[in-house]
Amino acid sequence: MNDHHSSPAHVGTGTDPVPNRIHARPVPRPGRLVSAVLVLVLAAMALNGLVTNENFRWDVVWLYLRDVTVVRGVGWTLVLTASSMVLAILLAVTLAIMRRSGNPVMRWTSWFYIWFFRGTPVYTQLVFWGLLAVLYPRLSIGIPFGPEFFVFDTDDYITAFWAAMLGLALNEAAYLAEIVRAGLSSVDPGQAEAAKALGMKDSKILRRVVLPQAMRVIVPPTGNETISMLKTTSLVLAVPFTLELTFVTNAIGNRIFQPIPLLMVAALWYLLITSILMVGQHYIEQYYGRGFGTDRPAGTGGGNGGGRRRRAKNGGGRQAAIAASGTTKEEPFMDVTP
């Protein structure tokens, strides 16, 4: 309809608002062409090697990709990922709040927790949780150092699944706690001060004012941690928990003497789930992130013409408003993560 933007056409018509628009030749960059060809050739070689090499046994891969045991393994992997992340997030928020507490015992406890769980390998922790029943055959509820009211066998309650989930969650919480803390300290202290001046209690200030703004900083890296967690679940054979994807595919591979195709099965499933999570993460980051493109509301100052945009109808409006207000720091991790 309107060819204003199909650039060469309008040059002669005289409708171009820039009468002396520059049409210069770009700088020649032969290096780009050479490097691109080189990389494409290498990629073609790699692909060829994957497809034509019969040792990969793609027929076996295809067969076991849809195997019931494997799909069930995928299910367990997802359950482990989701449940341990939920538990880890709850624990992490608690740890981050403890870290900011006025009570030194709370601060030290949180510090110690993070120090310990970040400082030991998750594999070691998982082995430990698997051996809990050996260490403490009986658990009890009662008065500390006093009488016991309820006693139960550790083995009956801390099953392999619980041990795996707890182990993953407790480890992850230490990392997430630092992310949450970074988020909380990225919020402008003036926000809490304004809430204080209105007579709000500390707990309410945290819940109503600080946390909602900290989410912008907390959520994107948490998405990243979720993807990381998906693959960390492959370590729960240390417990040993034997129903998740890596263990199941390994077991099948060993049984039918086809370890490589089964590794490919596991890899393809992890890739698929990660891809789905990445799509989710993309939208989450768009929602919470700071780049809002054309939908970004005007900043402070300046005039306020009648044409100023009404509040955005999509969910991004609120987050865009936080982003544009500049009450959270741009690089919060700079001063928190060592």
């Binding site: 304004a194 004012v209 703004q213 009450t327």
Partner: peptide, 26 residues
């Protein structure tokens, strides 16, 4: 107690140089 102080503060309005409006609320 901080709760009592919060109550005392609630009867005093304060306006800041940097406005300090809550950005996530209209």
């Amino acid at each position: 107690h901080p709760r009592v102080i919060a109550k005392q503060r609630s009867r005093i309005g304060m306006v800041f140089q940097r406005f300090n409006l809550f950005p996530h609320m209209t």
